[in-house]
Amino acid sequence: MKMARVVTLALFFVFLLITSLAMRPFGKPSNTGMDDYFIQNGQAQTGSNNIVTSVVFDYRGMDTLGEATVLFAAASGVLLIFQRAVTGGKHE
């Protein structure tokens, strides 16, 4: 039983090693059209020097809205569950 675990772990390690050797070179994406558009036009169109912020808050603003909604729902859930601790278990 212990032998099977060791063999499985070794096979997984060899698989990870082969995969990491077969990947494309680091820092060279396959398609750069979108990146080049953002880098060339982002500063003039949104007026912000930080391209990451201009993508997060302007080009892809819907993602930020979803992220803020998730955080809002988490805080509301925590407040709903731990409300008993404030009132001591009684309803106001």
Binding site: L71, F72, V78, A85, T87, G88, G89
Partner: peptide
């Protein structure tokens, strides 16, 4: 929004229960 949500979570987790 992020500041008040995260500090709300920390405040609610840190206090003592009524029981």
């Amino acid at each position: 929004e992020v500041f008040s949500a995260l500090s709300l979570i920390v405040l609610m987790l840190s206090m003592r229960y009524g029981g």
